[in-house]
Design a protein around this nucleic acid. Sequence first.
DNA 1: ACGCGGGGATCTATTATTGGC
DNA 2: TGCCAATAATAGATCCCCGCG
Lengths: 365, 365
Amino acid sequence: MTNEDDKARVANIFDVARLAGVSHQTVSRVLNDLPNVRPATRERVEKAIKQLRYTPSQAARALVTRRSRTIGLITTGGPDFGPSSTALHFNDAARDARYAVSMASMLDSDPASLRAAVELLLRQNVEAIVLIAAHAGALEAILSIELGVPFIAVDAGGRPGVHSVALDQYAGARAAVDHLVGLGHREIRHISGPLDSTDATERLRGWRDSLAAAGLPAREHLVGDWTPASGYRHGLALAADRDMTAVFVGNDQMSLGLIHALSSAGLSVPADVSVIGFDDIPEAEHFAPPLTTIRQDFDGLGRDIMTELLAVLRDEDAADLPRILPSLVVRESAGPPRGRAADPIDSDTTPETASAPAAARQPLG
Amino acid sequence: MTNEDDKARVANIFDVARLAGVSHQTVSRVLNDLPNVRPATRERVEKAIKQLRYTPSQAARALVTRRSRTIGLITTGGPDFGPSSTALHFNDAARDARYAVSMASMLDSDPASLRAAVELLLRQNVEAIVLIAAHAGALEAILSIELGVPFIAVDAGGRPGVHSVALDQYAGARAAVDHLVGLGHREIRHISGPLDSTDATERLRGWRDSLAAAGLPAREHLVGDWTPASGYRHGLALAADRDMTAVFVGNDQMSLGLIHALSSAGLSVPADVSVIGFDDIPEAEHFAPPLTTIRQDFDGLGRDIMTELLAVLRDEDAADLPRILPSLVVRESAGPPRGRAADPIDSDTTPETASAPAAARQPLG
DNA sequence: ACGCGGGGATCTATTATTGGC
DNA sequence: TGCCAATAATAGATCCCCGCG
């Protein structure tokens, strides 16, 4: 009955102190990198820590410091490449900064479950909340909740008073449409994402501005929902539009659906219709034909979130980061319009032909 | 200078007790649903809680109870549809069970960063650790670490002594290959995933067994890495193989690359070569041609993880859950072999033709 | 002044004990 | 006995003050 120490109790700071022959105060100094500790003593303590496999209890530390070193991450929407990728890279960056990430993902973003998610996170004492949302509705809903902690959203809209990080959607769209214009297209349609997404509206704005800058008309755009199915649906309608020679599509998945629909209707890409997408998902390179698209740096975005977060944690009204520029990836889905070999009307943009290398990436200025 | 209460201190249990006119002991009883509280008193306390917007500090609670109501989730690999989807649904299920999820995702799974991730999670006092890994190496690495908390892996291999949850990869592969056999194919190749993935080896085993059951020869399989690029690379080689009439591919992304390569080589799918994939990613329906594939229920898998977890948390040696069966989704990438109209050699499998509805799903028995 | 020890208070809840109506 | 108050111990750290070489 001498079960004194056969229950594997986890070591605490006093155990370390005893083993190292110092006071718990000194152990704490070592733990928190405080001065006034001789190197020799520091070493003895660190050895004791290692020997006991001691890790300080976050709960106890959080209790007294009121800082949990945990970030709350809310994501809405399905497992699409962009958001998933961003979340992964953000998590990486957070871990590098020795922060834990508590996640709350939800497929749909109704206010009720969003509020529940926020409360769950706040109860975890998160130091800040990050939102990666597919729909702007989620952002509005969260802004209406009193958080009590710093908040950062991935949002290309950039509301005043809200810290946001994003890739430059507008510049990406301009690059895409300018590319089509440079190839000689004059009737360029657009299938956008859902209009409650600021990513979608920024791309839409870029399309409009590029057409206006080239003196070309902007027909009514079509509104999709990011899914291949919506691209397919609109593609069936577009196939009947005999004026149109090119389509700028809001993302790669809808591009896939669009190409499918055009092919079913007997139209060839890019001989009859040029298509350009957005995102550069891993599949895009192997579409039929390989997709010309706009590459987004989700890795950089994820790291930017953490950079901005650390800045805000230090100083509540830190400035937002400059937005990373996407780059054009030229493959085979966009070429000169049918009936005209190659006579670019806008000579300040370098025209690419279908015979260009399978994937020539061009950073934007 | 009377800033007595203008610093918004968060309410604690004593504030609630004071407002409700009871002791903090009674508040605790209400909080934890303990008996010996009159309904009227309970109501007074609950009203006070609401009024003060009081939420008990998880840190303090974790400190004394040694339970954090937090699960650690480790994921390795990029943002592929399957793992991402599984993680999302698991997070949903966890939140329903009022558990928080602390995530640690990493692109590659080297032992060093895995160990760092585990330690970060353990310091958070997670009650259990869940692994969703692309490569089996990650599982081995984690098993070599002494965790001290329950552990569950998503792993089709099913090591003894390790709690695991998975979809029935073997049955899915059998269904896919049986379908090809039923269409009349006799030379069926396989492009597998990386062999350190048990998902990949289970699918490989299913392919071999189905061929053996039909008395067909199994040529050497090709090993990919789940990416479209690897499917493309192997597709270029397969295009030269004039015997082969069908390919069972380890996942949908490699199928896309394969189809791309076959088309480049002038071969038509399914007229010359039938292709069947695995996963049923959202894009698969719009491949050229739409992909016949095996649909995986990642939603169910995510929920199964949580179900198993709760069981293990109650009883360390709970039994594993039965594995969910995938279902065959018939589209247009698989048809009868070239040179033979349609004479299935295996009549116990219902043959499908390319003229079948675009997506007829068949649950497996 | 540096390097430490000793002895507290503190954070917020859980849990137990005693005791009163 | 049922309902609750009062008091205290406890979890594991941080942090502050004082004091001693």
